[in-house]
């Protein structure tokens, strides 16, 4: 059925943009983590039952179901346990860029961070990396204080030491 001015076809799409600004109350446990970030430090919390250290801490061990009260200061160095090279454009990022699952030294869970100051083709499992922070004057209570991770001059970690952290 051809469309004419007298008999227009169905309306197939109407653009309806939505913009939402959310507010977030972190609660007691995450406040400690966010205050540490504001000081330029990264901290985890240890589970009193399984002894595993969570970062970012959420106030409880989700496997044991108990509160994680003990604070553990971490160095900001870690190991890439797995990663992905993204070729799709993303706001503020020019492809290809690398997102890696990083097990921070002293923690028992991985967090996802960008890897920069490095050719994406060079990134590998077991690679040792460190956090790169924003300027001290720019510190806020947000994990965005860590801009990305970059490689450090250390030998790659052995597979056995990180294989269970995905």
């Amino acid at each position: 059925m051809s469309e004419t001015a007298e008999a227009p076809g169905p309306v197939t799409i109407v653009e309806t943009p939505i913009h939402l600004d959310y507010k977030f109350t972190p609660g007691v446990a995450q406040s400690r983590f966010l205050r540490a970030l504001e000081r330029g430090e990264i901290t985890g919390q240890r589970c009193p039952k399984c002894q595993k250290v969570y970062v970012p801490p959420r106030g409880a061990c989700s496997m044991c179901g108990v509160a994680t009260d003990e604070e553990v200061k971490l160095s900001g160095k870690g190991t890439i346990t797995t990663f992905c090279v993204t070729q799709i454009p993303s706001p503020g990022l020019v492809p290809p860029y690398v997102t890696a699952w990083i097990r921070l030294d002293g923690s028992d869970i991985t967090s996802m961070f960008l890897i920069q100051e490095c050719d994406p083709a060079e990134v590998r499992l077991g690679m040792r990396v460190e956090a790169v922070w924003v300027e001290e004057s720019e510190l806020v209570p947000d994990l965005g204080n860590i801009k990305y991770f970059r490689p450090i001059d250390e030998p790659d970690a052995e597979y056995e030491t990180y294989k269970d952290y995905v």
Partner: peptide
Amino acid sequence: RLPFTGGSVTGAGGYFAPVIRA
């Protein structure tokens, strides 16, 4: 992106690709 998480993930593929690599 949330205030307590690190680098951004681009869609479901960005989350699952590292799992596949592992």
